[in-house]
Every structure is written in structure tokens, then in C-alpha cells.
Amino acid sequence: MIKEIVTDIEFLQQPCEAATADDASVAQDLFDTMQSMDGQCACLAANQIGERKAIVAYEENGQLYAIFNPAIKQGFIPYKTREGCFSLPVDSEVRRFKRAIITYEILKDGQLVPRQRKFADWTAEIIQHGIDHCNGVLV
């Protein structure tokens, strides 16, 4: 289901709860909402659609992915950049890593399965943005 983007700062600043396999519909809502934005959205966190669950959906090479309970395990090559956000009216300067090892879970056969992957460049940046949202950090 397509959801409205949340702009309530107090809501967005609250850290998300751990997601479970029962939250699969939230991931689908993230996909539906992203697809409704005509290619203008590379990443959304669940709290941006009103669900306080640690789920991030992102686009990579034309494919949408949902990761549950993501965390930065290690970051490499820090840099500063300006990012916009659908939930906030202004761009912010943030610190990101050009490459980052992310731990997360994926939904497979109705269960969450742990994964770890090294992300780079744009994909690493947008996932870090989503992780910030999950942690209640506004950018």
C-alpha cells in the first residue's frame, strides 16, 4: 500500500524497534511507496511511512531490496556530503563512508536470515541514510 511520507520531527527522532518476519507487509509498503514516486526515491526507512520498525528499502540497479535491522559494522573512507530527505525540507551536511560493511537480515521463506555485505559509493550512502533514520537520526 502506498503510504504518505512522515514529516513529524518528534516521530522521526525516535529510534525504531527491531523488525521481525511479521513485518513483511511494511517492506511491501516501502516498495509500493517508492514505486509511486516515479524514480525520484532511492531509499526509504519504515519510520518515513509511519512504521517504527528497523527496515530500509533501497534501489540498486533498478531492483528494490528490503533489509531488516541494518547496522554499520565497519566504515571505510569517510567523507562529507549534502543529502536531501523526503521527510525534511532542507538538505543537510552529513558524514558518510565511501564503503561500508553492513549487517542486516533479509526475509526468506517467512523467516529473517542474517547477512553481511560490503556496499560502496551511492548504494553505501543511501543505506547509511536509511540506517540513520532507523536510529532516530535526522539528516
Rank of each mutant, 00 (worst) to 15 (best):
W122L: 15
Y58I: 06
A120N: 12
E60V: 14
P70F: 00
A42L: 15
W122D: 15
R99L: 07
E125L: 10
E125N: 10
L44C: 10
L64Q: 09
E17L: 13
V56L: 01
K118M: 10
A19W: 06
A45G: 12
V26Q: 04
S87T: 04
C16F: 05
G84N: 03
K73L: 09
S36P: 09
C134R: 03
T81S: 08
R95Y: 05
S36E: 15
E51D: 07
I127P: 03
Q63F: 00
S25Y: 13
E59V: 14
F86R: 14
P78Q: 09
S36F: 10
T123L: 12
I106Q: 08
Q74S: 11
T7M: 13
L44G: 08
I127N: 01
C16T: 12
W122Q: 14
D22K: 14
A57M: 06
F31T: 14
T20A: 08
R115T: 05
K73H: 03
K108N: 13
V94W: 01
P89K: 06
T103G: 06
I9F: 11
V139D: 06
M1I: 10
K80G: 01
V113R: 05
R99D: 10
Q63D: 05
M37Y: 05
H129L: 08
Y58N: 07
E17V: 08
R96T: 06
E51M: 02
A46T: 02
I72E: 10
D8P: 05
C16R: 03
M34Y: 00
C134M: 08
N61T: 12
I67H: 00
G110V: 15
L138S: 03
E51T: 01
N47M: 07
I127C: 01
A27I: 11
K3E: 14
T7W: 04
G75T: 09
L107H: 07
E59Q: 13
S36W: 09
K118F: 01
F119H: 03
V139A: 05
K118E: 14
I102W: 05
H129M: 06
E83H: 01
K118N: 06
I106P: 05
T123K: 02
A57Y: 05
L107T: 11
L44W: 03
K118R: 08
A18Y: 11
Q14L: 13
G50M: 06
I5T: 11
